[in-house]
């Protein structure tokens, strides 16, 4: 157990360094969402409540988390393509140690994302500061785990050339199906039902609702939480199974 933990930490540190030293990952996970938060607020906040900071900041946090699937996936796909992982398979590290190390190495970036986007949002509109914001920062870790799980899964099955295109579907899913950029009231019922069944809108609602107050604890908190957690668990379980298969090919 102690050795397993030690190996996971060693792998995590290496993964974290690799991600941190890729300037593109910082541009996409921090720079671009921050620019969008500021830009969209100043252009649209007087036109629609969608872009008031109390909705925009938590929405941007979850949107930025969707980029994590790309960067975790890319790191794994590159590690696979260069035989780096094959070499590590000969070490005593177990599949779940690899998976947890990839996941843990992203958590500091998740925390930085949350703090940055909420703080900048708070500087622009100080009304969002409060206990709700602290709770939103904490709860935003849950959707990030979903995106990390998806990233690990994609990195395990895609190569370094296809990972960009495939993970952009996930990012587009978060962008379009989260309902954060447009009001969903006028949408077709079937589309709304699809949005409710997928994790994207639930992830955004989870963080937005915890920040702005919960009226119906089941509808506003428990249900979105269960849906996001279910997708997270499934993505991790499938990722571990496929990763194990890749480790020892049959």
């Amino acid at each position: 157990m102690k050795k397993s933990l030690s190996r996971t930490i060693i792998l995590t540190k290496r993964n974290f360094k690799e991600i941190l030293r890729d300037p593109l990952s910082l541009v996409f996970t921090l720079g671009m969402p921050l620019f969008m938060e500021i830009l969209f607020y100043f252009i649209f906040h007087n036109l629609t409540s969608q872009f008031e900071m109390k909705y925009l900041a938590p929405g941007i946090v979850v949107f930025a988390e969707s980029f994590l699937s790309l960067f975790v996936g890319l790191l794994i796909a590159l590690d696979r393509s260069t035989s780096f992982l094959t070499r590590l398979y000969v070490s005593k590290a177990k599949p779940y140690e690899f998976i947890f190390s990839y996941a843990l190495s992203i958590v500091p970036i998740v925390i930085i994302q949350s703090l940055l986007f909420f703080l900048v949002g708070g500087i622009i509109d100080s009304s969002i500061f409060g206990i709700g914001m602290i709770l939103a920062i904490l709860i935003s870790i849950i959707p990030s785990l979903f995106y990390i799980g998806i990233g690990i899964l994609l990195g395990t099955i895609c190569n370094e050339k296809s990972i960009g295109g495939i993970s952009s579907i996930v990012i587009a899913g978060q962008s379009v199906l989260s309902g954060m950029w447009f009001p969903i009231e006028g949408l077709n019922e079937g589309i709304v039902a699809l949005m409710d069944a997928l994790p994207f809108r639930n992830a955004t609602r989870l963080v937005q609702n915890i920040m702005n107050g919960i009226n119906d604890s089941f509808q506003d908190f428990i249900l979105p939480l269960i849906i996001v957690l279910a997708y997270t668990v499934v993505s991790f379980v499938v990722a571990i199974i496929l990763f194990r298969r890749k480790m020892v090919s049959k």
Binding site: I10, K13, R14, S83, F84, T86, R87, L88, V90, A93
Partner: peptide, 27 residues
């Protein structure tokens, strides 16, 4: 231990960090 056909190194780590990483991983 094994050295595969393709170069198997941690790309963004320095040579020293690669050595220390593998040494730590081997316990």
């Amino acid at each position: 231990d094994i050295s595969m056909q393709e170069t198997a190194i941690a790309r963004k780590l320095t040579v020293e960090e690669n050595i220390v990483f593998y040494a730590k991983l081997s316990g």
